[in-house]
């Protein structure tokens, strides 16, 4: 069972990497980019029957640092 966890910086947390990518896009001539935030995608291959609570637990205990990051779970 494929599951994706998308980890993003919380709104308001400064994202220096996103800023640099934004700057580089502007340098390449792409106009109209208002902001860039860079996150992380974790693909999990889980045993059938793994419940949502277990995935939530994985996110809170390791995959995301909830001090600065939010996470979103997408089940295939």
């Amino acid at each position: 069972m494929k599951t994706r966890v998308i980890v993003t910086l919380k709104p308001g947390v400064l994202d220096p990497q996103g800023k640099a990518v934004h700057h580089a896009l502007a340098g390449l001539g792409f106009s109209g980019v208002n902001d860039v935030r860079v996150g992380r995608l974790v693909e999990l291959d889980l045993a059938d029957g793994t419940d949502d609570a277990a995935i939530e637990d994985m996110c809170r205990k390791l995959l995301a640092n909830t001090v600065i990051e939010n996470y979103r779970i997408e089940r295939a």
Binding site: V13, L14, P16, Q17, A20, N65, V67, I68
Partner: peptide, 9 residues
């Protein structure tokens, strides 16, 4: 708290 990437990268 947390330690993030240096502001100037």
């Amino acid at each position: 708290g947390a330690l993030m990437r240096n502001a100037n990268l």
